[in-house]
Computed example of a mutant assay.
Amino acid sequence: MTFTTAPVTVAVAGGYELAEGGRWVDGRYVYVDILSGRLLELRDDDGRPTPRQLARLDVPLGAVAPVSGEPDGWIAAAGTGVALLTADGTPEWLDRPEDHNPVPSRMNDGVADPAGRFWAGSMAYDGTPGAGSLYRTDPDGTVVRVLDGLTIANGPAFSADGTTMYLADSAAGTVLCCRVDPVSGDLSGGPETFVRLGSGEGSPDGTTVDEEGCLWVAIWGAGEVRRHHPDGHLLHTLSVPAPHPTSVCLHPTDHRLYVTTARHGVPHPTAASGAVLTVPVPVRGSAACSWRGRLR
């Protein structure tokens, strides 16, 4: 596969404080603006795509996954826990485990795995080391803490068979690799370090796996997206015109990469900061997996 320097297009101009969690769902690109609690979409068939707001919560919204068999139904990592969102965006809380965290905390990025479970991380608002956790929501609605001692749990992504999970701990500068039992959802052994960024290289944020099993990682603070081979070695680095890329999503049928970015922490933001960017790439991704529970 040959990568060339590709033009980056601003699909949605800057304005989001912390755009994140981009996913392909039923022919549309769905993403969030975390701090404003908004869920938005871009339709794939729009000539000049205009974002449409699907829901707005009164708490931070970290990420969503579609609910199987429920059009416009979502499971969300939001506020201090995990909720189901009905068509009007009203949350029905499954659990709020971060209510018990001794430091003020919120949920962050999340994704459904191929077996239909929803995984989401958390973080302290002030970045307290070790205050973050990773949670798994099973199809029966039970929320289980799977890992603790993280700082900013970010970017969970799964291999196509669901047996490998990648998880970024942004503040630690690491992307972890975990073996997952696809039947039970239990981790097989402890997480291993897949990639470790050096000082000054930025922080790993959102991730996604492409059709060749390679991992794409948004690098906050470096204005980069990196593609890694399944053995961890770096294959390609793509520069984007915004210092804080936050999530990456590959179109499932077209050769396009979508990147969300943040204005948060940028002294002199441009139209590319707090935006949705697109880049032509020679590889595709897959549509988002669904949570296989039911709206109550």
Rank of each mutant, 00 (worst) to 15 (best):
G116L: 11
G79T: 02
A288M: 06
L197A: 04
G73N: 08
G285D: 03
G127I: 01
R196F: 03
T278H: 01
D113K: 04
G155R: 02
L234P: 05
V8R: 07
T86H: 15
L42S: 07
D186Y: 05
M123C: 04
R227Q: 11
S36P: 03
P91F: 06
T142L: 12
S184Q: 11
A13I: 01
P245G: 06
G185Q: 11
T5C: 01
G116P: 12
L61Q: 06
V281L: 05
E212S: 13
L57C: 07
S247G: 02
A78W: 04
P7Q: 11
A131C: 07
D72H: 14
P51V: 08
G200M: 13
P191N: 01
S122P: 07
C178W: 05
G185T: 11
P97Y: 05
W220L: 00
W74F: 13
H228S: 10
Y125F: 15
P245W: 00
A115S: 15
S184A: 12
V281Q: 08
D88F: 11
L57V: 08
T208M: 08
T260I: 00
G62E: 00
I75K: 06
G232P: 07
T5N: 13
A271T: 14
G89I: 05
T208F: 01
M1R: 12
V67A: 08
V111L: 02
I219A: 00
E20N: 01
L197W: 10
V8M: 08
S159M: 09
F118G: 03
P267W: 03
V82Q: 08
P114T: 06
Y125A: 06
V195P: 10
G116S: 12
G213H: 03
Y31C: 03
A153L: 01
D88I: 12
R52G: 09
H100R: 15
S105A: 15
R106V: 14
G127K: 00
D231E: 15
